[in-house]
């Protein structure tokens, strides 16, 4: 503030002080604020869940749109001779290490693999959770190697773009194919076949 404005500003401050002189009593404590804050937190969580569902729905739509004659976009197809007639399948002989290598080879700049848990394993439906560390914090990359396709999704969803997930899915599929991409049919009620987690 310049010198000539200084006294004027002080005068204004004094005048503004007269405006707040009639201040009514302040609500006691911060319980009202905390209630409002908790409501906001709940809204944010539900908003995030709703957002994830919308993005997932959009992803399914995108995949179905690209799975025509040239399906290799978000979803890469293994060789046709390995396709089973029906049922869900995991890539027998697709070691977790190879799948993780496929992920590592395609991670975008600024994203690295997190610490792999000791009990990492394929889950039913050909799912594999791979922890990653992004610039926005830790995230979980979920691979789905099943039904003749490779897919990659991430939570929180904002930590990677669809293009980055697409690159990871392609890389994992390339690893799968280099491992021979044989398939195994999972019978009803079976979970996590040993062959997939070797």
């Amino acid at each position: 503030m310049s010198d000539d404005v200084e006294p004027e500003a002080a005068h204004l401050r004094t005048a503004l002080a007269t405006l707040v002189a009639t201040e009514p009593e302040l609500p006691a404590g911060s319980a009202d604020i905390e209630r409002r804050g908790k409501r906001r937190l709940a809204q944010r969580r539900w908003g995030a869940i709703a957002g994830a569902l919308v993005v997932a729905a959009a992803g399914v739509t995108a995949v179905s749109l690209t799975s025509g004659p040239d399906p290799v976009r978000h979803v890469a197809q293994p060789p046709t001779e390995s396709e089973p007639g029906n049922g869900s399948q995991l890539a027998e002989g697709f070691p977790i290490g190879s799948a993780v290598n496929g992920v590592a080879a395609a991670l975008p700049a600024g994203v690295s693999l997190g610490e792999l848990p000791m009990d990492i394993s394929w889950r039913a439906g050909g799912l594999l959770d791979v922890p990653v560390v992004t610039t926005a914090g830790p995230a979980t990359l979920t691979l789905r190697v099943s039904d003749g396709t490779c897919e990659a999704t991430v939570l929180p969803i904002e930590t990677m773009t669809w293009a980055e997930l697409d690159a990871i899915a392609r890389s994992v599929c390339a690893e799968w194919i280099s491992n021979g991409s044989p398939v195994v049919i999972i019978g009803p009620g079976e979970e996590n076949p040993d062959a997939a987690s070797q």
């Binding site: 503004l16 405006l19 009202d32 604020i33 804050g37 906001r40």
Partner: peptide
Amino acid sequence: AYLLCGDWYLADDLVQDALAKLYV
């Protein structure tokens, strides 16, 4: 907030809302 909006009740609402965002 009161000097911004000229209403003590609205001022309380503005402050409560700002502090609720801070809480989050």
